[in-house]
Amino acid sequence: MEKTNSYSVKYRLKKNKWAYIMLIPVVLYYFIFHYIPMFGIVIAFKDYTPFKGIIGSEWAGLKHFISFFNNMYFWRLIRNTVLISFYDLLFNFPAPVILALLFNEVRNRHFKRTVQTISYFPHFISLVVMCGMIRSFTLSEGIITNFLVSIAGIERESLLQNAKYFRAIYVLSSTWKEVGWNSIIYMAALSGINTELYESCEIDGGGKWRKAWHVTLPGIRNTIILLFILRTGALLSVGSEKIILLYNSSTYETADVISSFLYRKGLQEQNWSYGATVGLFNALINLIFIVLANTTSRKFSETSLW
């Protein structure tokens, strides 16, 4: 029994030799760039200075964690991070799905391709340029402000100066930038749906809505669920770049998140150990979220990452 097993492993190795050899760089990549650096997490428990190195630096125990939890802004950072992520998930997760479904209904090929391509454009604008545009459009005389004043009757002011609006600006500008690009993966999933299903639905008397509900959506359901689980794993990792480019001291109240705090504290003040602590904390929370999402999904829909 054992012999056949080893024979089969050997046989498989031989048969797929090149495939395995081609796998080596990928494994090496993950090992070198994703597993070895994990060792660096220990600096969260040390008083790290670059010259002494990771091993040579002195142990600090949980000092940095305690200091972070006791920080006067701790709860505000958590609240802002969670809320911004939550709104981002709430609006920007379904948006590309809806867009892809809409594209799917467009019959004019030419029109569809054009609109699709245009919707990708904002994705290619650099974040710095985009934030510069947002900042100047939302000044008290900016075009977005002008539009909102005349349509919604809001008070004329610099919108990014008002903590109330920060999250909306953050989330909606992401929608504008990424909705087209993110819909590509759903378009790909849509193209994989067997057309016979549509035909049989039609024969059964199903209209547009029924087709969308009973054929299209189930067809891309697995893609949606997988992307959702992955997204949940990043729930608490609001990137610092966009926040830093958009916030200012009058909006810290709603805009300051863990990563922007980390940027000010860890990078500007070169407090590496503290930075690693906050990052580790963030990663732990994300891990919990992704495990929860995966378990839930496995229970209810039989689709899961693992």
Binding site: N71, M72, Q161, S249, S250, Y252, R264, N271
Partner: peptide, 23 residues
């Protein structure tokens, strides 16, 4: 200094703005 400086800076710049904008 590292322990407290960042919080002070954040608190000051935030409140400076609040006082000026009348919040």
């Amino acid at each position: 200094i590292n322990e407290v400086d960042e919080n002070i800076k954040t608190y000051v710049s935030e409140n400076t703005m609040k006082f000026i904008l009348g919040l």
